[in-house]
Amino acid sequence: MARVAVTGGSGKLGRACVRDLVEHGWDVVNLDRAPSPDGLAPYLSIDLTDYGQVVGALTGVDDRYDRLDAVVHLAAIPAPGLQANSAVFRNNILSTYNVFAAAKVAGIDNVVWASSETVLGLPFETPPPYLPVDEEYAPRPESTYSLVKTLEETMVGELCRWNPALKATGLRFSNVMYVEDYAAFPSFESDPGLRNWNLWSYIDARDGAQAVRLGLERDGTGKEVFVIASPDTVMSTPTAELVKAHYPDLELRRPVEGHETLLSIDKARRVLGYDPRHSWRDHV
């Protein structure tokens, strides 16, 4: 049985990831500041900004485990505006550096980490270069939080250059949702402009967890980043109508059908075998 540490395993996406990994046969350790209410995996309290603690957690803990095969790094201040910009910058960039540096010390060459949809240019006050957006254009950070995610992607690329054995999979997650969040979705229809900040996209936490597991399983080495979203939008209005109303001058690189997402998941489908199976429409 392979053993994986999940940082932020007590968080919204983290809990779904821990559950999915356990259900698929992984031995999971949850590294977080607070335990998960689910209690599905052994928990270790940690400050990820303390390099010594991270090295200790990834190299083995007495009476708990003596090795790890992989790391999923989800822990972070999860969005802009929750703390002062300097605090977001310090916590998030230092935590990610410490995880990757400690993984090298521990001999761990398989790391999946949470990037963000925000690197695509959210909240799109400056429109994206084309639709659907994808991984092919350079990041456009518009907040300190997004700047850190962009710097993380650059940093990880250099770490992979230094260590050709490293496989690092960055997942640009959309807005994470649980089933109980879906009751609010019909209210978005009254003012579509309130949700165009991320092109009306979202990710069901269960499908986000699937993407994490597939990232751990992908073949090859080096850095790869993937947009991870649900296959549909949060709206009942067809996607083509939303584009016509809100982004009439943007290049539409391919037709969009029905309620198809404008955060392209084509690369994730093709490379990872990502197959999202959950929609808010099944619950409202």
Rank of each mutant, 00 (worst) to 15 (best):
I93C: 01
A101K: 02
D62T: 12
F188L: 11
A211I: 09
I77E: 02
R90E: 05
A79P: 02
P129C: 14
E260Y: 07
H283L: 06
K149D: 03
Y130F: 12
K167P: 05
A2R: 15
V284N: 14
G258E: 13
A87W: 01
A41I: 06
G193Q: 07
S264Q: 12
L263T: 03
V71G: 01
I46Y: 00
D66V: 13
D66M: 12
W162C: 15
G60P: 07
V212F: 04
E257H: 15
V112T: 06
V18A: 07
D207A: 10
P192N: 12
V18H: 02
T59C: 09
L31K: 01
N30L: 00
D20C: 09
P37V: 03
F226E: 03
C17S: 15
L166D: 11
L216F: 15
K167L: 07
Y130Q: 09
H246D: 12
N92A: 06
K167Y: 05
L216W: 09
K104G: 14
L272V: 10
K267S: 14
I46M: 00
W26P: 04
R269Y: 10
V71K: 02
G81V: 00
Y247H: 13
D27S: 11
Y43D: 01
A245T: 14
L131T: 08
G273I: 14
V71Q: 01
G8D: 05
W280S: 00
N198Y: 03
A41Q: 03
A70P: 10
Y178S: 01
R281N: 01
G14N: 00
E189G: 03
A106T: 02
D275E: 14
Y247V: 03
D266E: 15
D20R: 11
D32Y: 00
T96I: 04
L44E: 05
S10A: 13
F185H: 06
S190M: 08
N98L: 01
A114K: 00
L194K: 10
V99Y: 08
E135L: 04
Y145V: 00
